[in-house]
Design a protein around this nucleic acid. Sequence first.
DNA 1: GGACGATAGACGTTTCAACAAGCGTCGTCT
DNA 2: AGACGACGCTTGTTGAAACGTCTATCGTCC
Lengths: 165, 165
Amino acid sequence: MTTAPPRPARKPRFDSLYQEAYLNLWRTYDRLKVVEDELFVRFDLSAQQYNALRLLEAAHPGTMPTLALGTKLISRAPDMTRMLDRLEERKLVHRERKPENRRVVEVGISPTGLALLDELSGLVREGHKRQLGHLSSRELKQLVELLQAARDPHEEPGGRWHRTK
Amino acid sequence: MTTAPPRPARKPRFDSLYQEAYLNLWRTYDRLKVVEDELFVRFDLSAQQYNALRLLEAAHPGTMPTLALGTKLISRAPDMTRMLDRLEERKLVHRERKPENRRVVEVGISPTGLALLDELSGLVREGHKRQLGHLSSRELKQLVELLQAARDPHEEPGGRWHRTK
DNA sequence: GGACGATAGACGTTTCAACAAGCGTCGTCT
DNA sequence: AGACGACGCTTGTTGAAACGTCTATCGTCC
């Protein structure tokens, strides 16, 4: 087959600029996620689980209720119980019902969990650099700004992810 | 950049600017995805399935092999067979083995599928506007540019998603 | 023209996400 | 104090994703 001579103009692959932006967002997330997952799968972790451990680390030596942790995750998780089951089975977290209120289950990170995070920290940092290390600091900041603006109306006003400035 | 001016207030929620950008990407994708999913779930479709139907629509009245379709999807799908099983069961697509090469299965969109896309088109357009309608055209274009730049090294050079300009 | 490797999908199995319903616990109202 | 409703989590079930393995078909080489 010979080379197609004059490309008859790029066909409109997208219905609208909104769609183009969203599909690019999806695609970019998907591509970068591959890099993350490759790393975590070596430790039998999902990105979401790692995220949860990081939040518990931030709360350490304190604890937090199961569902409170669920709402702080990047991507919402309607099944915290079983996710924590898996983490607890590996002794990465511990759970306890307090006598004051036996409804809530307080979750905390364990020494084993902290050790795992410590072991991972360097690799995660490298991973993020592999993902986005080719962008300049200025570009990254601009990207963050735009992403925040993009999701701003979809965040709860008081939430952890809502824009404050 | 000189060393930190007064920046004591905000706690370092992120390890690095790379991480901040990636987590913002993740979060933004997740928030906007909610809007899409709400729409598609009413039609018992996933975003990925819709995406596949759109690709088949673009090829219509032609067809394409199963795996070729798989590689064109936004997010990679290692199990095209069963995804197409579900779509075929609903008569949205049709599959056929051609005598010339009985290994490949050619997939095409059916009239029912085209009708569904037609029914959806307005709603999808509205959905995208609800997702990102608050951003200016200039912001959207800038966002697309940055997203493309972000994933560029992670795309295959010849691929459908690789930056050409 | 038969053996061989490569190709394209199908399929079995395991794991995980999502939704819904259920159960113990607590606060409150009368 | 007992009833009632809200809360916080657990559990059952269903459906889909991920991974490896298997089958059929094709091209090629001798």
